[in-house]
Amino acid sequence: MATPTSTPTATQGVAARVQAQASTRRGAKTWLRERATALALVPLSVWFLLSAVSLAGAPYAEARAWLAGPFNTTAMLLLVVVLFEHARLGVRVIVEDYVHREPVKLAALLLTDFAAAALGLACVVAVLKIALGS
């Protein structure tokens, strides 16, 4: 507890220590996002699995026509976006748990975000290319 006699500099020292060790206050949002993506992946996974089994070994034209249907295009885009976000959050937790050297950790976290964005976007482009028939 701060007393009336404590000097401003001492208070500043405590504030700086707290600042350095406190959470960024974004934990609840990340936690909810992990759960929300997991929940959304339940029906999307069922759709993907049934599709994959029925599509296994399908010839090119059949696979294209399947993905070009509006329902499947929408479902695949949803799956890709939610899946890459879920994976990004998961890999971030692994990095945060095992990489303790601050610069390396920061680089790994950034790399995770960039890789998820790039690969996810590549998937979206591929799906749209097929859906729009080019």
């Binding site: 695949m76 890709v80 690969l119 591929a126 799906v127």
Partner: peptide, 18 residues
Amino acid sequence: AGLVVALVGLAWWLAALA
């Protein structure tokens, strides 16, 4: 972590189909 590799595989398959 293993499924992240599968995710790369999904991207590869979609790119191949496109």
